[in-house]
């Protein structure tokens, strides 16, 4: 079966909440999270810090417009 990640049209979003001291720390945590999860072309789409922690939406672009799209290829055995 094909990789599940290949079936994602474009992006993978992570919605979460992290404890941190300030916006900067939240940003760093967000970036590290993407790295720890080994997600390519990551970005912090949304970040809001308030007092005790931050609401984060992280995005990893798996397939960008103009690149090859694995989900267009026929089903293959791996």
């Amino acid at each position: 079966m094909k990789r599940a990640l290949d079936q994602v049209v474009d992006a993978l979003d992570i919605e979460t909440f992290v404890l941190c001291g300030d916006e900067e720390e939240a940003r760093q945590i967000g970036e590290r999270l993407l790295a720890e999860l080994n997600l390519p072309h990551g970005d912090i789409v949304f970040l809001e810090f308030n007092g005790c922690g931050a609401r984060l939406r992280l995005r990893s672009y798996l397939h960008r417009p103009g690149q090859g799209y694995p989900w267009l290829s026929p089903q293959e055995e791996t």
């Binding site: 970036e31 590290r32 990551g42």
Partner: peptide, 8 residues
């Protein structure tokens, strides 16, 4: 500014 892969 950031590592290419890790963006750190």
């Amino acid at each position: 500014e950031h590592d290419f892969v890790t963006r750190l």
